[in-house]
Design a protein around this nucleic acid. Structure first.
Length: 361
DNA sequence: CGTCTTTGACCTGCGC
DNA sequence: GCGCAGGTCAAAGACG
């Protein structure tokens, strides 16, 4: 959960199940339109047939479900916040001066020098507050950062650019440790990818490979894979967009240990996977989302603990806690894999974020 | 034979 | 407007 969101005074998640997200620009229209619809319904009271009644029942049911989910989320958010502050205190008490890990992350990815838009997006994606995809928000730009970008766009007076930026797919990055002798630019993330191009870029002697999701024909997700210029044992996978389909069926278990021989078709026949926009599963130690790995682990633990109703500091009974944690993680994964849940969550959060955004026009 | 990868050509956006 | 660089297309070849 994002600190920025958590810090907002009121975060009652108003899940608009089944309704498209409302941007603040659309708000007045959206307010006006349903009114008309209601009036139409009133003008035709005789049309209320069993179908309509069923729909109403369904709507009520979903509203109820909606409210329950909102309550659950609020509870989780509250627990998360409590645990987070507890963790912060513990870290402060420990007086560990470990700064942000200075791996090759910052400089490893050399963003395009020409294309400012993608560069800024990369920056946004790499922002410390970037949404953790684990929580179903798919590595989207941090709302605060997005708002900041919004502001600069407004001041620069380039509406076209701004629109283009807003239309850009979500970008997330994945860092994968790879054998330097293995020349294949394959990142096993659980989806099926079809390579459609390769290019040597100016700022990196290693070629960059371009992949499209081949699991669903209409899936808009694209992936770029390139070795880090600084450390060629690191593969940098950049994901653009969100999958519009479920996860591919799990492959045979032996693929979890795909050896060198699996390099050729590894992209097409992946191991039982995490979502690319979702974080690597614990059994994928070689996968690293670039943004603040340790913080993510802590957040995973926090959320898992919060969901299992267990304080983080309980070092004893480690085994049972581990089981609980796994269970909680499984529940979280199940939830985040549910497209309708994600849609509702994203809808609610985006609407809420826009409402609370400090850069309201 | 169908699918996937490779790779040169082409397209597009950006800076000068 | 031109040149550069990133991104995409599509024909040809490889592979199972």
């Amino acid at each position: 959960m994002d600190p920025w969101i958590s810090s907002q005074p009121s975060l009652s998640l108003d899940l608009h199940v089944g309704l498209p997200p409302l941007s603040r620009h659309q708000a007045p229209l959206a307010l006006a339109k349903p009114k008309v619809l209601v009036e139409e319904n009133f003008l035709q009271p005789l049309k209320k047939e069993p179908e309509v009644a069923a729909l109403e029942t369904e709507l009520q049911r979903m509203s109820e479900e909606n409210r329950c989910l909102a309550e659950a989320l609020t509870a989780v958010a509250a627990k998360y916040e409590a645990l987070r502050s507890q963790y912060t205190q513990m870290v402060a008490a420990g007086a560990t001066t470990t700064g942000p890990s200075s791996t090759s992350e910052g400089g490893s990815v050399s963003p395009s020098r020409k294309r400012k838009t993608s560069e800024s997006l990369d920056t946004v994606a790499a922002a410390p507050g970037a949404q953790h995809p684990q929580y179903g928000l798919h590595g989207g730009p941090h709302p605060g950062a997005a708002a900041a970008a919004d502001q600069t766009e407004c001041t620069s007076g380039e509406p076209c650019k701004r629109i283009r930026e807003e239309c850009k797919p979500k970008v997330s990055k994945l860092y994968v440790h790879a054998d330097p002798s293995d020349l294949s630019l394959v990142v096993k993330d659980g989806y099926q990818w079809r390579k459609y191009g390769q290019k040597v870029t100016k700022d990196n002697p290693c070629p960059r490979a371009y992949f499209r999701c081949s699991f669903a024909p209409a899936c808009p997700v694209k992936k770029k894979v390139q070795r880090s210029a600084d450390d060629n044992t690191i593969l940098v996978a950049t994901y653009e967009g969100e999958h519009n389909h479920g996860q591919p069926p799990p492959a045979p278990a032996q693929q979890a240990h795909d050896g060198p021989g699996a390099s050729k078709n590894a992209a097409a026949k992946p191991p039982s996977p995490p979502r690319p926009a979702a974080p690597p599963a614990p059994h994928h130690p070689q996968l690293h989302h670039h943004h603040h790995h340790h913080q993510q682990q802590q957040q995973q633990q926090d959320v898992a603990a919060a969901m299992s109703g267990e304080p983080v500091g309980a070092a004893a009974a480690a085994t049972s806690e581990l089981i609980r944690r796994n269970l909680a993680e499984h529940m979280a994964m199940t939830l985040t894999r549910d497209p309708s849940f994600k849609a509702a969550l994203v809808s609610a959060l985006s609407g809420r974020i826009l409402e609370l955004s400090p850069t309201k026009e």
